[in-house]
Design a protein around this nucleic acid. Structure first.
Lengths: 195, 195
DNA sequence: ATTTAAAAGTAAACACTGTTCAATTAATGA
DNA sequence: TCATTAATTGAACAGTGTTTACTTTTAAAT
């Protein structure tokens, strides 16, 4: 076969994703440039398209890496958590978003063309994240009510996400919301108390 | 002066915003083109920049129009509301976002350069929206606790926004969240019950 | 060892962006 | 009538994603 470098196709793919993720973290979704990624790893723009087929697929790969890092971070923080694991989870959610502002925002900034479904591998990464939330909420619920976690988890995730998103992007300028993370945690606790 | 058309500067400004808003509603933030807007109203791209100075300012004007329409819609629905005004407010929030998907999403998709503050007129439009929420939450709280509304409102707004955003953009594919609007309303009610 | 076929990679070309700015047009005041 | 001034243009520039004809490299087959 005709490879001229030392990299297998999979190594090259990984290089692109890692460098793409680095660039995403630096400049954010709106200033992301596939050409710049290609230049930085010493390949031409054409090679990127040969490997990924389209920019959307590259975006999914980059966001997929972010989802993996996010999951790893949540698990790490949960291992070191004390009694209140839910609080640790909410805080870890915020911490990751704050430290990785741009890469985190890109998860929501990038959208597939309407009607095009997410690839299976990507949905699986999302499921891995939500499963963590479901498990912690199930554990926090009174025994016997644990099956309500599957229905409650997405709603609480949405609540926490809302606090995080409005704070991080600053598009709605929520004055009077001093500690968004604490407020989000309070909302979660209230919902659990009701159930 | 050298105007060659029948429009005053303010009329032209209004034309651009209206056509820009129309285009935003049609194709969304990521396919928005200032050139296309100019073409549709029969002016050149240069004129747009003379009137608005930058694309960011045009975006703020377009999003400002969306904020106005949103406020009007909330007030309209509140006038026709029955006993449960908060439920009407949450539903109106969702309805507007669904009907005006693209224009609504653009409120969050567009971001000013870091460090650049929002213009005063724009913050005022946001305040008009949040004031509606604050007033309704204050009315729903037990008398005497009404001053907690200022602190509670942004958090509840964030919760509702989170449900709406994750559902509309579909970036996190929240299965098991059948009725996001009802779930958001339930979270709001829980928070009020606690206070 | 030579040929062949396929894989890998390139870079120019295309159609778009946003942005700037010298040149042009048209209306007004003197 | 003429100079001034506001309004408007559209070409030019530097980017973007995307496609594709082309070249290089390598492995396999003869």
């Amino acid at each position: 076969m005709g490879r001229r470098s030392d990299h297998t196709r999979e190594q090259l793919r990984a290089m692109i994703v890692v460098e793409g993720h680095r660039q995403m973290a630096e400049v954010g979704f709106f200033h992301f440039s596939a050409r710049e990624v290609a230049k930085r790893i010493g390949y031409s723009i054409g090679t990127l398209y040969n490997v990924f087929g389209s920019l959307d697929q590259l975006m999914l790969a980059i966001n997929g890496m972010t989802l993996d890092l996010w999951r790893d971070y949540l698990e790490l923080r949960l291992e070191a958590a004390g009694a209140d694991r839910l609080k640790a989870l909410v805080e870890a959610y915020f911490e990751f978003a704050i430290v990785n502002r741009h890469a985190w925002a890109a998860l929501y900034d990038h959208r597939l063309p309407e009607g095009e479904p997410m690839p299976e591998y990507y949905e699986a990464k999302i499921a891995a994240l939500t499963d963590i939330v479901v498990a912690e909420i199930a554990a926090a619920l009174p025994p016997g009510k644990a099956d309500a976690a599957v229905r409650l988890a997405p709603s609480l995730l949405a609540s926490v996400h809302g606090h995080c998103a409005l704070t991080l992007t600053g598009t709605l300028s929520l004055l009077h919301l001093e500690d968004p993370c604490a407020a989000a945690y309070a909302r979660v606790r209230e919902a659990l108390a009701e159930a």
